[in-house]
Design a binder for these strands. Structure first.
Lengths: 343, 343
DNA sequence: ATATTGAATGCAAACGTTTGAAAAAATTTC
DNA sequence: GAAATTTTTTCAAACGTTTGCATTCAATAT
């Protein structure tokens, strides 16, 4: 029945009446092996479809060549871009990526990390879940660090952890976005904020607030509403904004999805963009260039983040004992399009 | 230096001057272990952060609890939805997903599969790359099948392989989309086709053609242009369509991205949607509901596909020897929105 | 006092591979 | 033809865990 049991080195050894060591060496082109033996064994191995059992090698060498990627979600453009970046650098090096999705849950994050450690993953890229962040949990991370498994934070980070991290400069991106709106002449700028507590949300929020302050513009509480990063979550808040007695003349969305939701609501109300209301998003997702009007946004280099994070990991891995964590902050860049270009 | 070597059962055994077997049994709550010994060992294990080495267990039990997911890309909404579906079912069962991205390359696909087999992955979900499909390669798959590693095709499939598969009924979805356009009264329906050779492209194309035939409408070659699934790739073809002497009055895009690209071009030309030109996409991606006008599209149940594929895998795994491959075809569903509702 | 039972623990093999050291076989040298 | 050398092969241990069977030791029954 189980005729499909993978062929092992022992099987081949039996076939050639030699020892497993010989087979192993033959397959690995060890010089001390007779040319004929080598050729015969290699031919036979190919014929029967022998494939090295990497599990046993992992055990022997304590190297698994697998890395963990723990993220809250994979359904946004940005996250997948990051994963692609990781992939681009690490797949060619022979690493396998184990993707774990936490759905913003602390428990899942904890379990994922524990599983990865048990599987002797050689490094972990982590974007902490919202729940973890809100509650300020960190014990599950201590575990990883104690093991000296390289841990790289992506985007969402803990300030006080001795680990490397790769983040985008959300603050200045947001600042630039709002400054741009002001320079165009918009006076009442609303912000559709991300979920409270997340670095990403808070940094962009801070950029928004500080920019308004810099230009001595009032910060109106009622112009700041929460969203959940996705399109739908922008609909109601935007409606509320536009129904205000003194509605905003521009909206800065925490990301493109939210800005696109706002765009839709504004258009439904018959407002012209950018004449009646200006719009700016964040992410520079592919779609943002093709909405009508096209969306002014802040480019967020997801692929690059993934590639930089890979670099940080490799540095830590090859670092000689006295490892010093690095922080990479990639600049974000304002991309001006039609949705804010009131003339 | 390597004070971080993970604690093993042997370490604990040494500490308690007992045998590894005792420790193993104590940790696994084996009944034949003295209550005190058990408690002491468990406490100590927790204290020093012992974590079972799953690699050694994998070797011993020939079970790795890891699955391969091989896909051409992860930067589309649909693909990530599928992965989420797989995750939803399989993560709770203790499986780890190894995601491999092939970038539509045969070589990468082949290497990925080989790697997964070497790692003794217990099952593989595969959406074959375009290159593989075009060239009709299949030897790399024979290998998987010979190993009796469950192989589940997702969407892109080989007709003549004895494996389970989960696909969406692209043909009828496309048919319904075009039929809808016809019923509204559109006469010259163009199609922005996907890359040649891919099942997905061809099925939708066939739906388009056959529907036109059914209603005795002419099939105009010049109204069928290729795209690459992404927004940008729709821009030029759409321009060409709209510059024709007798331009189309509706466009059926192979997916939402392409339809949104077309929408943009049409609007730039000052055309009103749906009055001057009707638009239909495919996928029902989240954004499609919030474009302006909102996009009529065909819902493609990615999450469900992932979940069904998981089920197929589990069936095959638990199947008693005489395994019969299953084909699941999920219906796609027309979602009528503004972009086609000319009155 | 001896046999019997029961509880608790240890032994050894197994999973598949690699590798330093030892052994065996083949070849060369004198 | 024996010694020396070189080439080729085997041995045994290791990686960390589990598990059937054997062993030990103490308590109980005869």
């Amino acid at each position: 029945m189980n005729s499909s049991r993978p062929v092992t080195i022992k099987d081949i050894a039996r076939r050639f009446r030699c020892s497993p060591s010989t087979v192993s060496r033959a397959l690995n082109d060890h010089p001390a092996i007779n040319e004929d033996t080598r050729k015969n064994i290699q031919e036979y191995a190919k014929e029967v479809g022998y494939q090295r059992n990497e599990v046993s090698l992992s055990l022997l060498n304590k190297k698994t060549a697998s890395l963990g990627v723990v993220v809250p979600t994979i359904s946004n453009y940005y996250e997948t871009a990051v994963i692609e970046g990781l992939h681009t650098v690490l797949q060619p090096m022979g690493y396998t990526l184990n993707i774990c999705v936490t759905n913003e849950s602390y428990l899942l994050e904890k379990e994922s990390l524990s599983k990865l450690l048990s599987n002797r993953t050689e490094g972990i890229f982590l974007s902490v879940s919202q729940e973890t962040y809100d509650a300020g949990y960190y014990e599950h991370l201590e575990n990883v660090i104690q093991r000296k498994t390289p841990l790289i934070f992506i985007d969402r980070e803990y300030e006080d952890f001795e680990t490397s991290r790769a983040t985008v400069d959300d603050y200045h991106g947001a600042f630039a976005a709002v400054e741009h709106l002001i320079s165009i002449g918009y006076k009442q700028i609303a912000h559709l904020k991300g979920p409270n507590g997340l670095t990403v949300s808070e940094q962009r929020f801070k950029g928004y607030v500080n920019c308004l302050k810099k230009y001595s513009m009032p910060i109106r509480e009622e112009l700041i509403l929460n969203t959940n990063f996705n399109v739908e979550s922008a609909i109601l808040p935007t409606k509320r904004l536009l129904e205000l007695a003194s509605p905003p003349d521009a909206i800065f969305g925490v990301n493109d999805q939210v800005a696109i939701g706002a765009m839709r609501v504004a258009k439904d109300k018959g407002l012209r963009i950018p004449q009646d209301i200006g719009l700016v998003g964040f992410d520079n997702s592919p779609i943002s260039a093709y909405t009508f009007p096209s969306l002014t946004t802040v480019h967020r280099p997801g692929r690059k983040i993934g590639m930089e994070a890979s670099r940080l990991f490799l540095n830590q891995l090859n670092g000689s004992g006295d490892f010093a964590p690095e922080s990479i902050v990639l600049p974000s860049e304002l991309v001006i399009r039609e949705s804010s270009l009131r003339i």
